[in-house]
Write a protein that binds this DNA or RNA. Structure first.
Length: 793
DNA sequence: CGATCCCGCCAACGA
DNA sequence: TCGTTGGCGGGATCG
């Protein structure tokens, strides 16, 4: 309808003409001229933006703003050119030469990428909570004249980035890019945890070595051996709030496209030259979940899917197609053109501050820290499992229910209907608290303090849907806390191994590194490196504190270990389990695991915990864990206070997080305050957790648990966009000769290279800019032998 | 001819 | 059983 309104009759008639139909039997709908019109039609482009208030122009603006200049330009060109021009041309033709069928929309016109552009044009990048950001698949499909199936492709990818979330059947909520930075951070974290960097290296190396090995088997095997450990759980990383809804709505287990999309993104975020070839991506993704090898068809299918995903990501301006020239020839690849994502490691903040911050979710990156631990744990567990079970066969069969239940807890929020949530958003309240599992996480970075990670099991109570086993991680200031839903199988594993799980050292390691970073260490070996060394990580063993050079790190790591142990001992876990079990029946499981960042959730108003509270929390945690470390928390209330810092706000992240940005998220209002000044967004998580815990009875009313002990503020580079990619070292040529590759970058690379202790392989360096912003240049991997060249297409 | 990837069959789910 | 989702891969296009 909308189209009609906008369209001119003539066009319509044209469109409707039999010719077209003849051309394509399929879709009448398709035939309609969606594309063209907007551009073509004199009045206004209708179809593209029919309902949306936003004009195409605005859309462009958004794109522009969002994207780097280059991208932006490029995008514009594309849009204008490909879309409008082409379309127009066709239309014109049609008009003129009606009879000749001509153009059925050429394949390009129907491309997913173009469709995605159209789709995106309908919604603002940063929607205000006020407007209705609901997406009705049917309507969209109709308006865009495509089959619904195609919309799913788009939406699924957007979902992976938390740009949309499913509300109900046929219904999605548009979140835009508000959560993008967090999502990316989370993904990067997870990617690091998964050792994607190493995996990539391995694959490349392998390829290089035996170039052919076509039989993927070897490669695969290799990969497995190496990476397999990590093959990680297929988890989906979710943001706070929305996930639950979505979960309730779709229980489809697979979510493979979504998960795949996230993994794909992870690869970019983790790899140094942020260029990922489809081949490598496919291998890694395949290797992960399937023990089995990948045969050719499987590989092929994977690639196909990656193209689908890549098209959407390209439309979002997150990646662009490039070609990597290798000895063999050029291979299709994609380069990350999205914003740079900081790693937690980058930031440095005084422990105290962090602690305080943690309490309030402001921005930080620490969030990730925890995640990793979880992830790793899972991974390790899996590995163990594998070891134990020689046969990797079927994915999981275990009834997830029991085990999973242990962990999972739905949040009340989840229960709340979306609409209600919506309303609630304004208020502070949210609780969703999934369960938190105690994890050993990391202590606050820098300082002595540190708290452990705290994950506490939250409660669970009444919640209904909990899925599998969501684990809530304490989040970091930045607000990124997430809950991980484990796959049943995984969950199972976890349960089984919970102890080891707890122990997981990795996180600690990360933390440690971070600290060092803080200190300004320019070069640091990334965790990954360490991992790589360990390539096969034995989960259980993970690592011991020993390795860490810095005292702090050691301390932290040790602490971690201790804590983890303590945790093991602690009954919390048990409790959780029991709770979970009880809950089980009522709960819904998610087949796939999800990582849910709690961050955004609004937190309760009370958010601001008084220092006292914080202190209390800390202590509480300790107690809870009963870890020996208990007293560890160094920060005093006063300190905390002092710590609270405005600094947080500064980061771009904050911006992203700003309340407004949060938008749809269930979060309450931004109003929350923080204890100190931190005003900006925070995570509700802490408050939520406390609330939940209290409810559950895990903690007494008076006690509060900090969501995240650590906080970090991340000094994010102020440039949100992709800025420097140092990595591009090799010869990457982008499709469009945009800018001269920066010699700078190359320089940087070089530096890293040299500095890297590890040698040619992976290295990551972290540098702190004098200006205060820290930027990581990630490690670059060098594979000497191979050369990568990226060329534009 | 290889790189892309559209198209839609059909299974998995939920209502 | 039916509608919604979305895995999947044949085979058409593109370059």
């Amino acid at each position: 309808l909308s189209n009609e309104q906008y369209c001119f009759l003539p066009y319509r008639s044209v469109l409707k003409t039999p010719l077209k139909q003849a051309a394509t039997s399929h879709s009448v709908l398709t035939e309609i001229q969606p594309d063209c019109q907007p551009l073509t039609t004199p009045p206004k482009p209708k179809e593209v933006i029919p309902a949306d208030p936003w004009t195409p122009t605005s859309n462009l603006k958004i794109l522009i703003s969002a994207a780097s200049p280059e991208i932006r330009n490029r995008e514009q060109r594309k849009l204008s050119n490909s879309t409008s021009e082409v379309l127009q041309a066709k239309y014109c033709e049609h008009l003129s030469g009606d009879e000749y069928e001509k153009s059925q929309p050429s394949r390009k016109e129907k491309s997913l990428g173009l469709l995605c552009h159209k789709f995106l044009a309908r919604y603002p990048d940063y929607p205000s909570t006020a407007e209705n950001n609901y997406i009705c698949l049917d309507e969209v499909a109709e308006e865009l004249n495509v089959e619904r199936r195609r919309i799913y492709d788009i939406v699924n990818v957007l979902e992976s980035l938390h740009m949309v979330s499913r509300l109900a059947k046929n219904r999605y909520v548009w979140h835009g890019r508000h959560n993008l930075s967090k999502t990316l951070q989370a993904l990067k974290k997870v990617g690091e945890d998964n050792k994607y960097t190493q995996q990539i290296q391995m694959i490349k190396k392998r390829e290089y070595e035996h170039e052919f090995d076509f039989d993927g088997e070897r490669n695969e095997e290799m990969a497995r051996s190496l990476g397999s450990n990590e093959h990680s759980e297929m988890s989906f990383v979710e943001l706070p709030g929305m996930e639950f809804r979505a979960a309730s709505v779709n229980s489809r287990k697979d979510k493979s496209l979504r998960v795949m999309s996230q993994k794909f993104v992870m690869l970019f975020l983790v790899s140094t030259p942020q260029v990922v070839s489809l081949e490598v991506a496919a291998k890694i993704l395949i290797g992960e979940d399937q023990l089995e090898d990948l045969d050719k068809s499987k590989f092929k299918t994977k690639i196909r899917r990656l193209y689908d995903i890549a098209n959407v990501l390209s439309s979002l301006g997150l990646i662009k197609k490039v070609h990597v020239a290798e000895e063999r020839g050029r291979k299709p690849a994609f380069k990350w053109t999205g914003p740079e994502v900081l790693t937690d490691s980058q930031e440095t903040i005084p422990s105290k501050e962090q602690c305080s911050k943690n309490l309030f979710p402001s921005r930080g990156k620490q969030n990730f820290t925890r995640h990793p631990s979880l992830i790793k744990l899972v991974r390790s567990i899996e590995n163990d499992r594998r070891k134990i079970q020689s046969a990797p066969t079927s994915p999981v069969k275990i009834s997830a229910s029991t085990d999973q239940n242990l962990l999972a807890f739905p949040s009340k929020m989840a229960q709340v209907p979306p609409m209600a949530k919506h309303q609630l958003e304004g208020q502070s309240n949210n609780l969703f608290s999934p369960e938190v599992v105690p994890k050993p996480d990391l202590p606050c970075t820098a300082a002595p303090s540190q708290q452990p990670a705290l994950t506490q099991p939250l409660g669970a109570g009444p919640l209904s849907h909990s899925p599998v086993s969501p684990v809530m991680l304490p989040q970091t200031p930045s607000g990124v806390s997430y809950a991980i839903y484990l796959h049943p199988s995984q969950a199972h594993t976890v349960t089984t191994y919970s102890p080891s799980f707890m122990l997981q050292p990795l996180p600690c390691a990360n933390v440690t590194e971070i600290k060092s970073t803080n200190s300004k260490v320019l070069n640091r070996i990334t965790t990954a490196e360490g991992d790589s060394q360990i390539a096969t990580d034995v989960p259980t063993k993970a690592f011991t504190a020993k390795e860490r050079p810095t005292t702090k790190s050691e301390t932290s790591s040790q602490q971690c270990l201790k804590r983890s142990q303590a945790l093991q001992d602690s009954n919390l876990i048990k409790r959780c389990r029991s709770d979970g079990e009880s809950l089980d029946s009522s709960l819904t499981f998610f087949p796939s695991g999800y990582l849910i960042p709690l961050t955004q959730c609004t937190h309760g108003n009370k958010a601001g915990f008084s220092n006292k509270e914080k202190a209390g929390i800390c202590s509480l945690q300790h107690t809870t864990y009963s870890s020996p470390i208990a007293g560890v928390i160094p920060v005093t209330a006063s300190e905390l206070k002092a710590v609270n810092i405005p600094a947080f706000h500064i980061t771009p992240l904050n911006i992203m997080l700003s309340p407004t940005s949060i938008g749809a998220a269930p979060v309450l209002s931004n109003t929350c305050l923080n204890s100190g000044n931190t005003s900006s967004t925070q995570n509700p998580s802490s408050s939520v957790l406390n609330f939940a815990l209290q409810h559950v009875g895990l903690i007494s009313a008076g006690v509060q648990v900090p969501a995240n002990p650590v906080l970090q503020h991340v000094p994010v580079s102020s440039q949100p966009e992709n800025v420097s990619h140092s990595s591009e070292n090799r010869n990457l040529q982008e499709e469009k000769p945009s800018v001269p590759k920066e010699s700078q970058e190359s320089q940087i690379v070089t530096e890293n290279f040299f500095r890297t202790p590890g040698g040619p392989n992976t290295v990551s360096s972290l540098s702190a800019n004098s200006d205060g912003t820290n930027r990581t240049s990630q490690g670059t991997l060098y594979i000497p032998q191979r050369k990568l060249e990226v060329s534009e297409d």
